[in-house]
Write a protein that binds this DNA or RNA. Structure first.
Length: 481
RNA sequence: CGGGGCGUAGCGCAGUCCGGUAGCGCGUCCGCUUUGGGAGCGGAAGGUCCCGGGUUCGAAUCCCGGCGCCCCGACCA
């Protein structure tokens, strides 16, 4: 750290800034177990807000929560060839239990397709049982070689949705519906703009027919895969014999989907909005949207300001604003710095002068401080929150567009852009996986997705940026987390 | 698994070259004074110097052997 009071500036060392911010805001801490993290109350509160919003959205679209076991028989993983190949290197395997070696090792779930579809095969008999729409909130384990707080840890928290449908079209519709749901959540709650679209074969989920992803750009111009939605086709249905009797008396395999977002989103939130003073949390996800800081000099003032603060808190709380009052015996300035580092959107300072004037001093996390009248303060704060939520989103979109290159004229320009400050490059691709691999090898950039129509460039590229051959799609290239 | 760095108080470090029984800053606790942007003074607590062995009258320091962590590369939400 530059000194004990300020964070390393983003421009100087983005990675150090990120780690220091997490420690300063007390979002998480390193655990005694390599590669694992402890999510501290301040960080977990953000995850809980995310969970609530997403869970409501899943329920509103007909999904139910369930819980499947942490341990999966090792043989289950092997049933889908591509799936096992994709996950084998990062599995944690339990070989002993109760002091004895197990007859069959148990895998600690890296994801739950296998055990869930094994159960689906019991529960689904008829077309009347479809669609089956389920979600679970769980922890998963993937033995990563290199980890980073929130972004990649050996154990992480997520939700995984799993559905079964009668037709391929219904499965595709579900996959895309969830992609849209994720997009709305990321834009409207996280104020984090994303680009959606299908992954290439090389980047898709092991075992999926197609993977669609949400790609966000962080402040260091690197891409973050923020969520994925998979159309699994009938791959798992065939491996786990998930069949149903059709309306016309036939027998068919179901069509599955799976989709997930994880605690990685907290990392995305930090790297989208955080500044050199610390965390910046969008009001809709903030644990405390407003923090009241009472100010006093003498004991009499102390009592008066505490009473006024209690009244104010009650008023805001009953209006549905998440508010807390910082009564600790510290210098007010110290409290300001602390709440700013934690990302609290708004602070209301309340002292004798304010009380006498019938005002409170409003300080915005994004900057600016002014007295506002107590009269109508609820409406004023709600308005301020909406403004901030929108301002964060607009700023993130502007930052992303400023760091995006559409239609590079040449391979050289393409490479130079990626090797400079980086960002998103939109360019034509011939569809050859070998070219994709070669570009990754040379530039460390991967195809994040083939952007959906609304994210594509006004001028459609006709040739591949690398080979000059006819382009099959416009691809979004970037270096990624 | 390769390359580099590091293990000393809760955190950050000095002390190691040249052996003499452990210190600084921040934080923590108590008291008084303070409190509108990171308070001041006084007092106090807190250490298997990563582990094991060896050399020595004596080891944080020297020797041998382990272990762990961080950073950079190969896998990934």
């Amino acid at each position: 750290m530059a000194d004990s009071k300020s964070l390393t500036p983003r421009a100087q060392d983005f990675s150090a800034w990120y780690n220091e911010l997490i420690m300063r805001a007390e979002l998480a801490d390193y655990s005694p177990v390599r590669g694992c993290m402890v999510i501290r109350p301040n960080g977990y509160a953000i995850w809980e807000q995310m969970q609530r919003a997403l869970d409501d959205a899943f329920k509103a679209t007909g999904h139910q929560n369930a819980y499947f076991p942490l341990f999966i028989p090792q043989s289950f993983l092997s049933k889908e060839a591509e799936h096992v190949e994709g996950f084998a290197p990062e599995l944690a395997v339990v070989t002993h239990g109760g002091g004895k070696e197990l007859e069959e090792p148990l895998v600690v779930r890296p994801t739950s397709e296998t055990i869930i579809y094994a159960m689906f095969s019991k529960w689904i008999q008829s077309w009347r049982d479809l669609p089956m729409l389920m979600n679970q909130w769980a922890n998963v384990v993937r033995w990563e070689m290199r980890t980073r707080l929130f972004l990649r840890t050996t154990e992480f928290l997520w939700q995984e949705g799993h559905t079964a449908h009668a037709t391929e079209a219904e499965a595709e519709e579900e996959t895309l519906m969830i992609l849209g749901l994720y997009r709305r959540f990321m834009e409207e709650w996280m104020a984090m703009p994303i680009v959606t679209g299908p992954k290439t074969a090389a980047e898709k989920f092991a075992g999926a027919l197609r993977t669609y992803s949400c790609e966000a750009m962080m402040q260091d111009n690197k891409a973050l895969q923020a969520g994925t939605s998979h159309n699994l086709g009938q791959n798992f249905a065939k491996a786990f014999d998930v069949t149903f009797q059709t309306a016309d008396g036939g027998l068919a395999h179901v069509w599955n989907t799976s989709w997930g977002v994880s605690t990685r989103l907290v990392g995305g939130l930090i790297m989208t909005h955080g500044d050199d003073n610390g965390m910046v949390c969008p009001p809709r996800l903030a644990q405390w949207q407003v923090v009241i800081v009472p100010i006093w000099r003498k004991d009499e003032e102390r009592e008066a300001t505490f009473a006024a603060a209690a009244d104010l808190q009650q008023q805001l709380r009953s209006a549905g604003i998440r508010v807390t009052t910082d009564l600790r015996d510290m210098k007010p300035g110290a409290k300001y710095y602390e709440w700013e580092a934690r990302g609290a959107p708004f602070r209301l300072e309340l002292g004798p002068r304010d009380i006498a004037a019938g005002t409170a001093m409003l300080a915005r996390r994004l900057g600016g401080k002014e007295p506002i009248p107590m009269e109508g303060i609820v409406a004023r704060l709600q308005d301020e929150m909406a403004t901030m939520q929108q301002a964060l989103f607009d700023a993130a979109v502007a930052r992303r567009e400023a760091a995006s290159l559409r239609g590079p004229k040449s391979k050289e320009e393409f490479i130079a852009f990626l090797e400079g400050n980086g960002g998103f490059v939109y360019a034509g691709w011939c569809g050859d996986p070998a070219v994709e691999a070669e570009i990754k090898e040379q530039t460390k950039a991967t195809i994040r997705c083939l952007p959906d129509p609304e994210f594509r460039s006004p001028v459609t590229p006709t040739t591949c940026i690398w080979t000059g051959r006819p382009a099959v799609a416009e691809a979004l290239w970037a270096r990624a987390y």
